[in-house]
């Protein structure tokens, strides 16, 4: 019995010794293996292409000066994975904000405000508990000029003994005054790998 316990302990120790150590990955120098699913490098590629194309097209430049106000609309996830589309839109928002051309409103959204505090803070109006000079006045919120919407699609194919997974990241930037799409872009991300790899 004791011999068995010792052998088992030794086996566990040996296996844990062989395990790959956990390490940090530097996104600026990541040549690591590619997954069949969408990873951060795919979102970065799509966001880079979208932002560079938006800036180069001039679609996000307000000819009257100042910054355009953008709202993030629906980004549909039509893939087999559970994707938080904020992973994509946040990169785009941050980059457009840094460009000095666009600012995103968090006070409006399809499913309510992204930051509900904008409206909650206004509920303090007429409250005797709060110094009213610091409470937000009526008519100060800014309505959006542009809306960012899109879709992430996935298509799977068998290619010989391998499988091919295609992702399409489609984005539109709509001018809310006219309803016209000022900018549209599509980034295809195609991966080919073992049939045993899972893409969901």
């Amino acid at each position: 019995m004791l011999k068995k316990a010792i052998a088992l302990s030794a086996g566990v120790l040996m296996l844990s010794g062989c395990a790959t150590p956990t390490r940090y990955v530097d996104p600026a120098a990541d040549d690591g293996p590619v997954a069949m699913t969408m990873d951060y490098r795919d979102f970065e590629k799509a966001a880079t292409e979208a932002v560079e194309d938006m800036l180069a097209s001039g679609a996000v430049v307000n000819p009257n000066g100042g910054r355009y106000i953008m709202v993030v609309s629906r980004i549909t996830n039509d893939t087999m994975q559970r994707i938080d589309t904020d992973q994509l839109t946040k990169k785009i928002r941050v980059s457009l904000l840094r460009s000095g051309k666009v600012v995103t409103t968090t006070a409006v959204g399809l499913n309510g405000a992204e930051d509900e505090m904008t409206m909650r803070a206004r509920e303090l109006r007429n409250s005797e508990e709060f110094d009213q000079s610091g409470v937000q006045k009526k008519g100060t919120l800014q309505a959006p000029d542009l809306s960012l919407s899109g879709k992430i699609l996935q298509r799977n194919h068998k290619v010989g003994s391998e499988q091919q997974v295609e992702y399409y990241i489609q984005l539109s930037l709509t001018d809310l005054a006219s309803g016209l799409a000022f900018w549209e872009g599509e980034t295809p991300i195609v991966k080919r790998g073992s049939n045993s790899s899972v893409s969901w």
């Binding site: 996104p27 600026a28 970065e44 966001a47 932002v51 560079e52 180069a56 980059s95 460009s99």
Partner: peptide
């Protein structure tokens, strides 16, 4: 000046090809 991401962009090159790549600055 920070761009969108920090990573390198990848491309697969084929012999005899001339490939063109373009990048736009993130700020004026």
């Amino acid at each position: 000046v920070k761009g969108v991401g920090e990573g390198y962009r990848k491309a697969t090159l084929i012999t005899g090809q001339t490939r063109y790549f373009r990048a736009t600055a993130p700020h004026s």
